[in-house]
Design a protein around this nucleic acid. Sequence first.
DNA 1: GCCTTTCCTGGCCACCCGGCCAGTTTCGCA
DNA 2: TGCGAAACTGGCCGGGTGGCCAGGAAAGGC
Lengths: 123, 123
Amino acid sequence: MSEDKTAEIVLSLEIDDPALADRLATLLGNVAGLRLAAPGEQAAATIVARDPRSMPGDITLTQRELDVLALMAEGGSNKMIARQLGISVHTVKFHVGSLLDKLDATGRTDAVAHAARRGVIEL
Amino acid sequence: MSEDKTAEIVLSLEIDDPALADRLATLLGNVAGLRLAAPGEQAAATIVARDPRSMPGDITLTQRELDVLALMAEGGSNKMIARQLGISVHTVKFHVGSLLDKLDATGRTDAVAHAARRGVIEL
DNA sequence: GCCTTTCCTGGCCACCCGGCCAGTTTCGCA
DNA sequence: TGCGAAACTGGCCGGGTGGCCAGGAAAGGC
C-alpha cells in the first residue's frame, strides 16, 4: 500500500468549463504537496465541475412517482413495486407512464438513467 | 451573474477517507484565490474521492458486452441495439443474458444501475 | 360550490423481454 | 491438433411492459 504521509496528493480534473479548468490548474500547480495527474494516471481524488447548462429544466415529480422511481432503480418489476407500495399493478403502470413522460424516456431503463443523470435519484 | 475574473473559486469536498480530506483541506486552505465552501454553500467545483473498498469484486466484461451495456444505458431496446451493432436480436439477447448473469441483475434496468454503481459505465 | 391535481383502479392489446433449447464460426492457447 | 472462450444465430414461449381507453376518490385553490 505504501501510504507515505509525505507523498504528493495526485488530483485529476473533470471540468466542463475550460476557463475554470485553466484557473484551477494554474492555482493548484503552485501548491506544494499537490500535483495534477498525468493523462491516464490514477488520481487520489478528482475535481468535478459539470456544466449546469446540461440540466436546465428541473422536473417536479410527485412523492408517489419518486417512490416508484426508487423501486425501479432497484430493478423492481411493476408487480414487485405494486406489492411494495400496496397498490395495484395498474396504478404502478400509471405512475411509470407519468415518469416516462416527465423524464422524456423511452422505457424504464432510460427513465432510471435520466433520473440518475439529473440527480433526481442516487444510484 | 457577476462573473468576476478575480473572484475566489469555491470548492467543496466529498471525500470518504478522513485523513485524505484533512490533508487536502489543509493544503487548499493556504492557496490564494481558492476557498473551501461553507456547509451548504454552492461550490464552483467539487473534489471527489470515493472509497474504493465500496466496490471490491470487479467484473470482467467482454468488449461486446460493454457495447451492448452502453446502448442499454441509453435506453435502447434489443431491436435498436441489434441495428446499431449490426447483429441479430438473438445475439443481443445472448449478450444481455450474460450481462444479467455477470452483474447479478434481475433485468436490464437493474443491470444498468449495477454497472453505474460499480463504475463500469458512466451515465 | 367548482375545478385542478394527485392518486388510484380496471380492461384490452401489441409488443418486448428474458430464459430455455439448439447450433455455427473464429480465435488463441496448450 | 484438440479444446475452450467469445461471438453469433435460430425457434419457442410465458410473462412483463407500455400505450390506449375508461372511470372514481380525496385534498387544496379560486
